[in-house]
Amino acid sequence: MTIIIFVLILWYGGLFFQSFFLHRYAAHQVFTMSKFTERITFILTWLFQGSSYLSAYGYGIMHRMHHAYTDTEKDPHSPSFDDNLFAMMWKTKTIYQDINDQKIEVDQKFTKNVPQWKSFDAFASSRFSRLLWITFYVLFFAYFTTALWQWILLPVALLMAPIHGVIINWFGHIYGYVNFKMKNTSKNLFHFDFLMMGEGYHNNHHKHATSANFGVKWQEIDITYLIIRVLDFFKIIKLKAIPVKK
Rank of each mutant, 00 (worst) to 15 (best):
His206Glu: 04
Leu158Tyr: 07
Arg229Gly: 01
Phe171Ile: 13
Gly215Ala: 05
Asn169Ile: 00
Met160Pro: 12
Gln219Leu: 10
Met160Trp: 07
Gly198His: 00
Trp151Gly: 09
Ala157Thr: 11
Ile168Lys: 00
Leu154His: 07
Leu195Gln: 05
Lys187Ile: 04
Lys187Gly: 08
Glu220Asp: 06
Lys235Ser: 14
Met160Lys: 08
Val166Ala: 12
Val178Ala: 09
Lys217His: 08
Lys181Asp: 15
Met197Arg: 03
Glu220Ala: 09
Asp222Leu: 07
Tyr175Arg: 10
Met182Gln: 15
Phe190Gly: 01
Gly215Gln: 06
Phe192Gly: 02
Leu153Val: 07
Asn188Leu: 08
Ser186Arg: 01
Phe194His: 11
Phe194Thr: 13
Ile152Phe: 14
Glu220Gln: 14
Phe171Leu: 13
Lys217Val: 06
His206Leu: 08
Met197Val: 09
Pro162Asp: 02
Phe214Thr: 11
Ala161His: 11
Gly165Tyr: 10
Ile228Tyr: 05
Asn179Thr: 02
Arg229Cys: 14
Val216Leu: 09
Ile163Phe: 08
Met196Phe: 13
Leu226Ser: 10
Ile228Leu: 07
Ile236Ser: 04
Ile223Glu: 10
Ile228Pro: 07
Ile227Ala: 13
Asn169Ala: 08
Tyr175Thr: 13
Ile167Cys: 12
Lys238Ile: 09
Asn179Lys: 07
Ser211Asn: 14
Thr224Leu: 02
Phe234Thr: 14
Gly172Gln: 05
Ile236Lys: 04
Gln219Ile: 10
Phe180Lys: 00
Lys235His: 15
His173Trp: 01
Phe214Ile: 00
Ile228Ser: 03
Lys187Gln: 11
Asn169Ser: 11
Met160Cys: 10
Ile163Met: 11
Asn203Val: 03
Ile228Val: 14
Lys235Arg: 14
Thr185Tyr: 05
Tyr177Asp: 07
Lys181Gly: 06
Asn213Ile: 03
Leu153Gln: 05
Lys238Gln: 14
Ile174Glu: 06
Ile223Arg: 00
Leu158Glu: 05
Leu158Val: 15
Leu158Pro: 06
Asp193Ala: 00
Val166Phe: 07
Asn188Lys: 03
Ile237Asn: 10
Lys181Leu: 12
Tyr177Thr: 15
Asn203Ile: 01
Tyr177His: 11
Lys181Glu: 15
His206Gln: 10
Ile167Lys: 04
Ile228Thr: 12
Gly165His: 08
Leu226Tyr: 11
Phe233Val: 03
Phe234Asp: 03
Val166Glu: 14
Ile152Met: 14
Phe234Val: 15
Lys235Trp: 13
Val230Ser: 05
Leu195Met: 14
Met197Tyr: 10
Ala157Asn: 04
Ile152Thr: 11
Asn203Pro: 09
Ile221Asp: 01
Ser211Gly: 04
Phe171Arg: 02
Asn213Glu: 10
Val156Glu: 09
Asn179Asp: 13
His191Lys: 15
Ile152Leu: 15
Pro155Tyr: 00
Leu153Phe: 11
Leu195Pro: 04
His206Cys: 03
Ile236Asn: 01
Leu158Arg: 02
Leu195Tyr: 12
Trp170Arg: 08
Asp232Pro: 00
Arg229Lys: 14
Leu153Arg: 08
Lys217Cys: 01
Ile167Glu: 05
Pro162Phe: 01
Tyr177Ile: 12
Tyr175Met: 12
Phe194Ala: 15
Lys217Ile: 04
Ala209Thr: 09
Gly165Pro: 00
Phe194Trp: 15
Ala161Ile: 13
Ile228Met: 15
His164Phe: 04
Asn184Met: 02
Ser211His: 13
Val178Asn: 06
Leu158Cys: 13
Leu159Cys: 07
